Simulated assay, not measured.
Amino acid sequence: MDIVGWLTDPAHWTGAGSIPFQAGMHLLYSVIALVFAAVIAVPLGIFVGHTGKGDSVIMGSANAVRALPTLGLLILLVMVIAPAFSSNLAFVVPSLVVLVLLAIPPILSGVASGIRAIDRSVIDAARGMGYSTAQIIWRIEVPCALPLTLSGMRGATLQVVSTATVAAYVSLDGLGRFIIDGRAANDYAEMAGGALVLAALAILLELAFAAFGRIAVSPGLTRRVVSQAVPAVEDTATRALSVAGA
Rank of each mutant, 00 (worst) to 15 (best):
F36W: 12
H26F: 08
I136C: 10
S86Y: 11
I123P: 01
S109E: 12
L68Q: 13
A41H: 00
W138A: 10
P69H: 14
A38T: 14
S132G: 03
G110I: 07
R66W: 12
M25D: 03
A117L: 15
G17V: 12
L102S: 02
G110H: 04
L74F: 13
G60W: 00
L74E: 05
Y29A: 08
G72C: 11
A67T: 15
V31Q: 04
A126T: 04
P94M: 02
A62Y: 00
Q22P: 11
Q135G: 10
Y29R: 00
A84P: 11
I32W: 02
I123Q: 12
I81E: 06
A90K: 11
F47H: 09
Q135N: 07
W13L: 15
P43Y: 03
A82F: 07
V93Q: 00
I123L: 13
I104L: 08
L74P: 06
G72M: 14
T133I: 12
R127T: 07
L101E: 00
A41P: 06
I32P: 04
R66V: 15
L96V: 10
A84D: 10
G15D: 08
V48Q: 09
L96T: 00
F47M: 08
G52P: 05
W13T: 15
F91N: 02
A90Q: 08
R66E: 13
A125R: 03
V65D: 11
A41S: 09
L74Q: 07
I115H: 04
I123F: 13
N63F: 07
A37Q: 03
L76P: 15
V78W: 14
F91C: 02
L108C: 05
A37R: 01
F85S: 00
L68D: 11
S86W: 14
L101Y: 01
F47I: 09
V98L: 10
A64C: 09
G128C: 05
P69M: 12
I104T: 06
F91L: 13
V65C: 13
P105G: 05
P69E: 11
I32L: 07
V31K: 05
I46Q: 02
D124R: 01
V93E: 02
A41C: 05
P105L: 03
I40F: 06
A117S: 12
A112V: 06
A37D: 03
V57L: 08
P106C: 06
A103K: 01
L96C: 05
Q135W: 07
L28H: 10
F36A: 06
V65E: 14
S109T: 12
V35G: 08
T133S: 08
F85V: 04
I58M: 03
G54Y: 02
I19G: 10
I46S: 03
G60F: 00
I137Y: 05
L71V: 14
A125W: 14
I19Y: 15
I75P: 09
V98W: 06
K53L: 11
A67W: 15
A82N: 13
V39L: 11
V57A: 08
S121L: 12
S18D: 10
H26G: 10
G72V: 13
H12E: 10
R127L: 10
L77S: 06
M59K: 02
I58G: 00
A37C: 06
L77Q: 08
I58A: 01
N88K: 12
L96I: 04
L28G: 11
G60D: 00
P94V: 02
S56C: 04
G52D: 01
F85I: 06
G15S: 07
I123N: 03
P69W: 15
A67K: 05
V100A: 01
V57N: 01
A38Q: 03
L89P: 01
